[in-house]
Nucleic acid binder design. Structure first.
Lengths: 152, 152
DNA sequence: TAAAATAGTGGGTTGAGACCTATTATTGGG
DNA sequence: CCCAATAATAGGTCTCAACCCACTATTTTA
């Protein structure tokens, strides 16, 4: 087994990048089996957790370009995972709502994500998994604060 | 501040993917300032840590396609970071060696990677950073064993 | 009520990364 | 000595993600 360069393995940045890629890759593979990608799951999750959104609000919440939201929703509404309805109060807006089928799909995807997670985190015991989750959460929170809307 | 969906934040897979992307993104940005990408740094690190390689060996060690190695080396030899010399013992092979300039560049890149790391891991204390590094290392090691050359 | 701003949409571009094939030079086995 | 395998190389393809601009419909504002 050819070893990877210690210069790289010593960098947490590199480890994060590499394990993150593995996580993303596995998740993406499962999503692809349903013809979906990452953003599809994120949009379903946002709609399930926070209720109906105008497309613009989905864009803002998830940090995805408005024109890309359109495309993702096109693909989510085709199999009936979301409903798009013109907002009668402001007819420029389209209110997006998750359907029962969409919720079922999200549940399925979430279960599969947990299965992937169990494989990925196999070398860690429960306490270590919680620890990892906590550390990553704190990093991400800081990212969100210092990143896009910094200084608020 | 619009919150991200808890459905996603509860998945370690998602956190890994997200923080990994942040790490990769920041590192890539610094590399891009020197006209380099991830693989350039990985190749320099491999050459610095393990000495000269035939291109095929670089390909095997880093898990990068042989034809992509060619392109990366083209770009590393232009600024003089590596030397390519035909192997006299087997004239099909090209022995790639890192130059003094290449080592200097790698040192610079590594320092910048550590600076990025300090920003990224700012919310964690030293013990927590070590802990994170350890957890990620164990995940990655398992990845490498169960992944490409599994069952050896 | 005319002009400016906003929401959604369609149709692109770009860059990275992974992968694939054909070609040339060289080596080693039959 | 001929053939198969190997090393490097050139020149592609494909997907994903992240943008960006132009256009239409609608609402808000001055």
């Amino acid at each position: 087994m050819e070893a990877l360069p210690p210069s790289l393995l010593g960098l947490t940045t590199y480890l994060l990048s590499k394990t993150g890629k593995a996580a993303r890759g596995r998740l993406a593979a499962r999503l692809a089996a349903d013809g979906l990608r990452m953003w599809h799951m994120a949009v379903l999750a946002a709609l399930a957790d926070f209720g109906p959104h105008a497309q613009r609000d989905l864009s803002a919440r998830l940090g995805i370009d408005p024109s890309d939201v359109v495309k993702v929703l096109d693909e989510l509404s085709a199999p009936g995972f979301v409903d798009r309805a013109r907002d009668p109060a402001d007819r420029r807006r389209v209110t997006v709502t998750i359907t029962a089928g969409g919720r079922r799909e999200l549940t399925r995807l979430t279960q599969e994500a947990r299965a992937i997670q169990d494989e990925l985190l196999a070398p860690l015991d429960t306490a270590e998994r919680d620890q990892l989750h906590d550390l990553l959460t704190r990093i991400l929170v800081q990212q969100l604060l210092s990143g896009p809307g910094a200084g608020g």
